[in-house]
Structure formats: structure tokens, C-alpha cells
Amino acid sequence: MSVTRSDVEHAARLCRLEFSPDELETLRGELGRILEYVEKLRELDVTEVEPTLYGLAGSTPLREDVPGEDTLAREDALAGAPDEENGHFKVPGVL
């Protein structure tokens, strides 16, 4: 399974990362080798096999609909914010 440059670029766009042309080429090679290695999974016949999606069996627990005590004071919520304005988190304009 060879990974194309545009595959790598597409993935980079999706996860909001940027690579120099050299880095992109190195990454293409590395991902290619890893994906080549994982190709061995194709040897397995998994047609009748259910995937194991969770670390634990069972049903997800349900919480009662009661407001909790974990709500933060606004100063604490904003304490780590790189930028804020008027009690809001602030980012460069979206639109």
C-alpha cells in the first residue's frame, strides 16, 4: 500500500498540521512503511468476527439528571485561555 503525497496532505489538512515539503516526504515514507507492516492484518479472515470497540463489556452507565457540583467559576474556566474578551474565549474571526 503506497501512500501518495496527496493522501498525506489530505490527512494533514484534516488534523490541522502542516509539514514542509521535506517533512512531508519523510512522513510519506514512514507512514508507507507502517501501513505496509499493518497490511499483514489482511491475512486474517475477519468476515465473521465482531469488532472489539471498547475496553470493557457491558452497557454505558446512566447518570441521574441532577445538576452537579463540578461547574467551574468563570475565572477558573477562563484561567488557561490564551485570549479572552468579556467572559468569552476569543479566537481570530471565523467568518
Binding site: 474578551e85 467572559g87 474565549f89 479566537v91
Partner: peptide, 10 residues
């Protein structure tokens, strides 16, 4: 005047 920005309330 404060520039082009987006403010977010969660």
C-alpha cells in the same frame, strides 16, 4: 474597532 474576531460561550 477591536478587530475581526470570534467570541465563544460554552
Amino acid at each position: 474597532a477591536g478587530g475581526r474576531r470570534t467570541l465563544v460561550d460554552f
